[in-house]
Design a protein around this nucleic acid. Sequence first.
DNA 1: TAGGTGACGCGGT
DNA 2: CACCGCGCCACCT
Length: 118
Amino acid sequence: MDFYRRMELVCQAIPYGQVTSYGQIALLCGRPRHARQVGYALSHHPFGPGLPAHRIVNSRRVLSGALSFGGPGIQRRLLLAEGVAFLPDGRVDLRRFGWRNSPEAFSDFEQLFAQQGV
DNA sequence: TAGGTGACGCGGT
DNA sequence: CACCGCGCCACCT
């Protein structure tokens, strides 16, 4: 499905050391209200290696997919390795590491999708 | 075809 | 804030 190919393009655009949410990925894919599908795809769809899925957290800033990275704490370790800091309660500090998308980002992705035929 | 299931999110309390 | 209910939607029985 095109949605998965769009997801791959968007996820690969998440900057090193930054974090975003399932809903934001869906939005950038041009599919509002598809946050659950992003989560579904990450756990079922065979994306190639190197897809930075660990940079995606839920809107509560919690690492909900811990068990899907091969064990508890793996996602946290990957993020710490790229310099992402956590709050005392264990949640991600989105204020400092959240991926901010400029309004132009949406049209930029639309252009990329068209160019890629998805 | 109908019903259940989530790596989710928002609005109300 | 935290907690809870409800809406969401592609997939899989």
